[in-house]
Every structure is written in C-alpha cells, then in structure tokens.
C-alpha cells in the first residue's frame, strides 16, 4: 500500500504538467508583480527601484484604507449570504419531499450562467434612485424609504456585495448540493432510528460531513470577496468618489488610470498576501482529518 501511494514516477506524471504550466503562466507573472512593487514605474519605461516607498505610501493612502475595509465587508457579506443561503437551498433541493426540486436545482444556478454585464445592468436598473424598481416598490407600499442606494458612500459597497453574492450563489449551492448527495444514506438511517428530526439530522450529520466542502466554499467566498472588481468596474466605477474601491480596483486605477504601475503592483501584492493568509488560516481552522465512512 505504501509503495502504491508513494510511487515516485506516478506522482511526477500526475503533478508535473500542472506545476510547469502553473509556474510559467501564473507564478512567473506573480513574481513580476512583487518585483515591480518596489519600483516607481509607469508600465512602459525602465522604472527606478525605490525600495519600500510604495508600501509606505500605501499605508498613508485614504483610498487604501477604504479598499481594505470594503474587501472585508465584501468577503463577510459573501460568506454569510452564499454559504448560509446556499446551504438552506441545497437542503431543500436535495430533499425528496420538496416538490419541483429539479426545477429549483436548475433555476438557482441560472444567474451564474449569465454574463456579469447583464446581471450588473439589471441590478443597476433595480437600484436606480430615480427610475429604480426598489424605490418604486417602497413608494407603492407608502413607505418613506427612498434611498440613494448606489450613490451613498456608506451603502454602495453593500449593494455591490449583494449583486455579487446573488449572482454567484449558484456555485456554492451546486457544490453543497453535490456534497450532500454524496453522503451515504446509512447515516440518515441511523439518525432515523434514534428518532432525530430532519433538521437535527442535518445539523448533526450533513453539516459535519460537509466540512471539506465548506472549507472550499469558505475559501471561495473570502478570496472572491477580497478580490472583487467587476461589479465596481461596471456599476459604480469605484464611486461615489472612492467609496467603493477594493484592492483590485485600486490596483487597476493606479496602474492604468493613473499610470503608476509600480504603486498598483504594491496594492496587488498586498492583496495576494491577504488572500494567501486567509486560505492558510481557513485550512487550519476547518477540520483537517480525512473523513472515513
């Protein structure tokens, strides 16, 4: 058995193609990011080495602070919305008693399939303060709750996080659903005999059995949140002002709008480190041991 699992030749064949491809296409440019973060560079000319100056400037930059805060809000929002709701919906769609569960299974995933441009345009229309659906609904209900959803420096980021969470809920939903379905039935049989309610059975069996899935979902939600970009790019342009900047948007803005590639790369490096630390911490926190049925 030991020899079977430590077959060096097999490991090399399995692992090397991926590692080579990944190192050349992803890791090598990543190293460039780190190197360039120590330069004052416009992306075209030679650039000059300036040590940690870019990083020192980052910590004095108001936009950087906003970006960090927004990344954390985004990550937290995605985690709660996608994993929480994804779990509930997956339980429902996996339950044989739920009528139309095949319909739900397809429909809950559909927003993922659409182009992000379409989805952002839709929500832009919904949240528009002048013509938007949401304010109209409040109006009809006679509530004095008209809001400047996307033009308010404190609210915009939550709206953007919601749009992202809503569209990509399907990924988490599909993963959790697949996880639930691969749990062997004899566990539920046992719970049955003990007289546990379905809810209790889920809490006691399904969720613990899904720890591998959840670990992955958590990484996906948190790194996805810290990395958020497209919604800002299409819906607010980082605005109003700089209030919905994230690190990725800041990197984009510094590199391409402001022509400060080196400074942008410092923000990008910070982001990659932040995500890496988050991933390692999640891996440590969520149960590590192999599940044996």
């Amino acid at each position: 058995m030991e020899r079977f699992f430590s077959n060096k030749k097999a490991i090399a064949i399995f692992v090397l193609p991926t590692l080579i491809l990944f190192t050349i296409i992803v890791f090598y440019p990543l190293i460039q990011i780190f190197i360039k973060s120590f330069y004052s560079w416009n992306g075209l000319s030679k650039g000059t080495f300036i040590g940690f100056k870019n990083y020192l400037r980052l910590f004095e930059d108001t936009t950087f602070k906003i970006s960090i805060k927004n990344g954390l809000i985004f990550a937290l929002f995605l985690t709660i919305y996608q994993i929480g709701l994804g779990t509930v919906l997956a339980f429902a769609a996996s339950n044989v008693k739920t009528k139309g569960r095949n319909f739900f299974r397809i429909v809950y995933f559909l927003p993922v399939v659409l182009s992000v441009t379409v989805v952002c345009q839709l929500w832009l229309s919904v949240f528009n303060s002048e013509y938007g659906l949401l304010n109209k609904i409040f109006q009809i209900m006679g509530m004095d709750f008209m809001q400047d959803w996307l033009s308010d420096r404190n609210k915009a980021i939550y709206v953007l996080a919601f749009v992202n969470a809503w569209q990509y809920l399907g990924y988490q939903f599909a993963l959790i659903l697949a996880g639930i379905k691969s749990i062997p039935n004899h566990y539920y049989e046992a719970a049955q005999i003990d007289g546990a309610s379905p809810l209790k059975a889920h809490l006691k069996i399904t969720i613990p059995m899904l720890s591998e899935t959840y670990r992955f979902c958590l990484v996906l939600a948190i790194t996805g949140g810290l990395n958020a970009f497209t919604q800002m790019f299409i819906m607010t342009g980082g605005g109003p002002g700089t209030s919905s900047y994230t690190l990725t948007y800041m990197m984009y803005s510094s590199s391409f709008r402001a022509g400060e590639y080196g400074y942008g790369m410092a923000a990008a490096s910070f982001l990659v480190l932040e995500c890496l630390i988050a991933t390692i911490v999640i891996n440590r926190l969520v149960a590590r041991e192999r599940i044996v049925y």
Binding site: R153, P240, G241, R257
Partner: peptide, 28 residues
C-alpha cells in the same frame, strides 16, 4: 498628470454626494 487626473475625477464625483465634505475633498 494622470495621478492628478484620477484624484480630481474621483474627488469631484465624491463632492457631489451630500455625505462628503468639502474639507475631505480639499485634503485628498
């Protein structure tokens, strides 16, 4: 100056929201 351009663009948009202050605008 692209750096200045980005700053004035972002800040002037910010200034058009009631919750921003002219003081923040000038400082940034």
């Amino acid at each position: 100056e692209p750096k200045y351009k980005v700053a004035i663009e972002d800040q002037s948009q910010f200034l058009l929201t009631p919750k921003y202050s002219p003081k923040e605008f000038i400082t940034e």
